[in-house]
Design a protein around this nucleic acid. Structure first.
Length: 491
RNA sequence: GGGGCCGUAGUCUAGCCUGGCUAGGAUGCGCGGUUCGGGUCCGCGUGACCCCGGGUUCAAAUCCCGGCGGCCCCA
């Protein structure tokens, strides 16, 4: 980079308002940054506005790319599922029936339809038609669609929805448990990559048995920690065993001539991940978008006094814009004549544009620009010759800083406790707390109730075994502790 | 599941308890001037069937009932 001179030290915006009431702050951000409108008159259903939609499309592109590169094929299934299919798997229907939307009219004589709350029972009957022998496997499908859940708890914009409008659900079919579990591990790797690019920090937890996906053998979840200490589930991966293939009779002809039941997995991500991203990188002035996902990566603000300067400064700004655009960057030049530079600075900081390029008469004369980072508000003077390299380098720096900050915050929030009292205190302080657990279901339920928190499960991102310590299960003192069980307040 | 609070111009909000002037402010928008390297300032103008439905009353944004939607706390 060379000729990049720091002309203002870091002085980032505070996070007091954000921490004081996270949900209020988030509603403010969605409204003021024109991302998403919460005023649509149906509970749990909201509107993506143009700027939010552009952000969402970059996230969808990341998700599509990550799946396409790893042997997944995109499909599109109907929103209707015949009740006959939906009800086939007993655990599945037990888990979802209370929150499924029924279609009260339509469908053929005697046929009842539901709106998909997830698509296992739509996909299985079709997979049965498509899979003949072991050479058709593994089959990896995904779609990005709306799913519907009649949430009884309080709904939250972009977080707890009745219409989840960006549900990426992958469904895979395998010859046996081993290959399906290999897929589960791969799905975890794919999700890590996606969240890494979103600069999100996450825990990977094996959900306790009582909280797994309805119809799954086990569920692995990605949980992030928001700035108020509550955790948010941002992705799940399920091993479904033969629970669905058994009832839908999805079998294949094996190499040895026998007919076998296939094993399946499913895994999902939704717009919750976008909410997590907006919040994680947020501050009292707005949000910061990871440069690779930002609809606008660089905003150029021309600064001029009077009309005689305007022409030359704007023409210089266009020169700068052209150079960045030709280098493949998403650039916007804000040449509105009725807004002052200061006003524009606040406006684009609110919207999370990662870099701002300021050009004025002084810069024109020196053939330079001033670049400001959104995350730290550091300012640099950069010669025109180094412009593209400097912007590229700073985008990388901002991205790395967002990711590093997120992980530091998350790591600082995870603590261990060996008594119920200590665990309670940790929860009160907004921590994720790991407590000794025998692994027994009933003891786990008792334990989370004793502490007064939700169970995220057993860590898969660090050593979960209590190992050398001689610790007792905090709820069942007669039992030896085998694992650390993560507890937190959850959204 | 239980409790509390709230819904007023495009947006944010005061007024509501204790019913009664022309529903006040900020922001936005339009015009004029002044400013422009961190939300310029001043003047004039514009904009609200006070969430919906019903009730009480001479009179309802205000009180009562129901609905819809939102926020907070507890289980």
């Amino acid at each position: 980079m060379g000729a990049m001179e720091l002309i203002r030290e870091a002085r980032p915006h505070g996070r007091e308002k954000l921490r004081a009431n996270l949900i209020e702050w988030f509603h403010w951000l969605l409204r003021e940054a024109e991302l998403y409108d919460v005023r649509y008159p149906v509970k749990g259903a909201y509107v993506w506005r143009p700027y939010g939609m552009r952000l969402r499309r970059h996230v969808e592109e990341l998700i599509r790319r990550s799946h396409d590169e790893t042997g997944h094929q995109e499909v599109l299934f109907p929103v209707f599922i015949p009740y006959e299919f939906f009800g086939k798997e007993s655990q599945h229907i037990r888990g979802f029936e209370k929150e499924v939307f029924w279609v009260s009219k339509g469908g053929e004589e005697g046929e009842r339809l539901v709106l998909r709350p997830t698509s296992e029972t739509a996909i299985m009957p079709m997979v049965k038609l498509w899979v003949h022998d072991y050479k058709d496997l593994p089959l990896r499908l995904y779609q990005i669609v709306s799913v519907f859940r009649a949430e009884t708890k309080m709904t939250h914009p972009m977080i707890r929805l009745r219409e989840i409008s960006m549900f990426k659900e992958a469904h895979t079919v395998h010859v046996d448990r081993e290959d399906a579990e290999r897929q589960v591990r791969e799905a975890v790797e794919i999700y890590k990559k996606i969240f890494d690019e979103m600069c999100l920090a996450y825990m990977i937890n094996k959900r306790p048995d009582w909280d797994k996906f309805a119809g799954a053998e086990y569920t692995i979840a990605f949980d992030t920690v928001l700035p108020d200490g509550r955790t948010l589930q941002i992705g799940t991966v399920h091993y479904l065993g033969t629970n669905f293939t058994r009832v839908f009779e999805v079998t294949y002809l094996a190499a040895d001539g026998t007919r076998r039941l296939a094993h399946t997995t499913s895994y999902g991500i939704s717009e919750r991940s976008i909410a997590a991203m907006l919040i994680t990188h947020g501050d009292d002035a707005g949000t910061v978008l990871p440069p690779r996902l930002a609809p606008i990566q660089v905003v150029i603000v021309p600064i001029f006094y009077g009309e005689e300067e305007a022409a030359s400064v704007i023409s210089y700004a266009r020169e700068v814009e052209k150079a960045l655009r030709e280098a493949g960057m998403r650039v916007h030049i804000d040449d509105r004549p009725d807004k002052t530079p200061g006003w524009k600075f606040y406006f684009w900081e609110l919207k999370g544009v990662p870099l701002r390029v300021e050009v004025g008469k002084r810069d024109l004369e020196k053939r330079q620009v001033v670049i400001t980072r959104r995350d730290t508000l550091e300012k640099y003077a950069v010669g025109l010759g180094e412009l593209v390299d400097a912007v590229r380098g700073l985008m990388r720096t901002v991205e790395e800083n967002l990711r590093r900050r997120a992980w530091e915050e998350l790591r600082s929030r995870i603590v261990r406790a060996e008594t119920v009292e200590a665990a309670k205190a940790a929860i009160r302080e907004g921590k994720v707390v790991e407590v000794p657990w025998s692994g027994d279901n009933d003891c786990g339920i008792k334990l989370k109730d004793l502490v007064g928190a939700d169970a995220l499960g057993v860590p898969l991102d660090s050593d979960a075994s209590v190992g050398g310590f001689d610790l007792r299960d905090l709820a069942c003192g007669e039992k030896r502790a085998e694992f650390w069980l993560r507890l937190s307040e959850r959204y």
